[in-house]
Design a protein around this nucleic acid. Structure first.
Lengths: 226, 226
DNA sequence: CGCAGATTTGACAGCCATCAAGGTACGTGG
DNA sequence: CCACGTACCTTGATGGCTGTCAAATCTGCG
């Protein structure tokens, strides 16, 4: 048993005991801004974020990139690798990070043998799907303020679940350029919106961290209210 | 063996032989514009579209609706129902339609017993995920023309795979209001874009059908080029 | 110190939303 | 058969949110 197995279990919502026999195959470090995977590459490993942040993205022919998801420690980087050899997106380290890989053949064998593990993996995919629906609503129907507020609230929730918040503050290594790529906006406009959030006393943020000062206010803007 | 089982197999990309023992539990008809499912409802059935079109959507508190996916015959309406009792979205019939339901307990038992079926189901979820990524790119990074052209090309491809195209024409029951809800635009703007497509000789469309006149031209606008 | 990248701010433009009006098709009821 | 209502599509005028372009400031880093 090791830290990566624990993370994998945590990510899939499973009891640690389920994963006792799982052991990591690789354990890698990578520097910020390096690609972990590029779209189209093949691979026989499923990777899990152990430390640091990363993001999934697609590079468009005209140079713009659309971010599909932001990955924090405990997230599975390529959960569909078990069923699809081709990865349809690229993954880049956002900070210096560590991640570890599990051979998909071993995971898949376990998936079949262990019903609880299958359920856990399915729940992981379902949760991601639900998350993507939220993103679609943001990009399709909501204003810049709403998208950014929602992004912040979403990250807050996920970090809190993993015990990575202190008070109302958390590590926040996202550059405004990245927030822009995630929300479908331009960096300039993100700067304007974040600036107004700060002036209105909703948030405080400095180098690498963010603090939610007025949670109800932020929720009034970015809550999905579904 | 019946038409619904065949459709379910087709949808999951499986050989028909795999599904021989599956039998439908319900077979329902429903009129256009009626809801098949509402978000939050629980259900113990997985439904498959037999005839007609439908769409998944989320209703926002301010009354706008965002369409998440358009469903054509052969599509599984609630593929995650096997792992998640709560459905996070609503589904509405777009035309008069027929659909049938399979008890999720039976499907799930088959999933565990039959490796090929598990793979097929996983492929279905992976394909949907990939499709949602494409939508995210549209809504996040692309113009109105590109989104609409892409929507048309995507439907064309899916209908072609199911053998539902004649020449370059296909049934196209989407109102412009619905295209707007799917692409994150307003009906007025959709009308302008479709009008310009028509004037430029890219498409022809009348009541309930659409014909792609200039496929390369449309692909130049709406191809993802990934 | 010098450079590259991130953030901020301002001016301006454009895409698309909003508001409004009119046309067409279709179903219903008289 | 015709009046009428409803829903959809079309078109125009106007406005606003956000993108684009540009430049200044700041920061970290070699």
């Amino acid at each position: 048993m090791n830290i990566c197995s624990v993370l994998l279990c945590a990510a899939s919502g499973e009891e640690i005991s389920v994963c006792k026999e799982l052991d990591w195959q690789d354990h890698k470090k990578i520097r910020a801004h390096k690609n972990i995977k590029s779209a189209g590459e093949q691979s026989d490993r499923v990777y899990v974020v152990c430390d640091g942040w990363a993001f999934r993205f697609v590079l468009l022919p005209d140079g713009r990139k659309q971010i599909l998801s932001i990955l924090i420690p405990g997230d599975v980087i390529t959960p569909t690798r078990l069923f699809d050899e081709n990865v349809r997106f690229s993954v880049q380290a956002l900070t210096d990070m560590q991640y570890c890989g599990f051979a998909s053949s071993i995971l898949k064998a376990k998936l079949i043998a262990d019903l609880a593990f299958l359920d856990a993996w399915a729940n992981l995919l379902v949760a991601e799907r639900h998350h993507h629906f939220g993103l679609l609503i943001d990009l399709g129907s909501r204003t810049a303020d709403e998208r950014i507020a929602h992004l912040i609230l979403d990250l807050k929730l996920r970090l809190k679940r993993r015990g990575m918040m202190v008070e109302r503050s958390f590590v926040f290594p996202l550059s405004q350029r990245l927030i822009a790529a995630a929300t479908g906006l331009t960096p300039e406009h993100v700067s304007r919106v974040m600036g107004s959030f700060r002036r209105e006393g909703l948030i405080e943020n400095g180098k690498g961290f963010l603090r939610i000062v007025n949670l109800p206010g932020l929720q009034r803007i970015g809550g999905l209210n579904l």
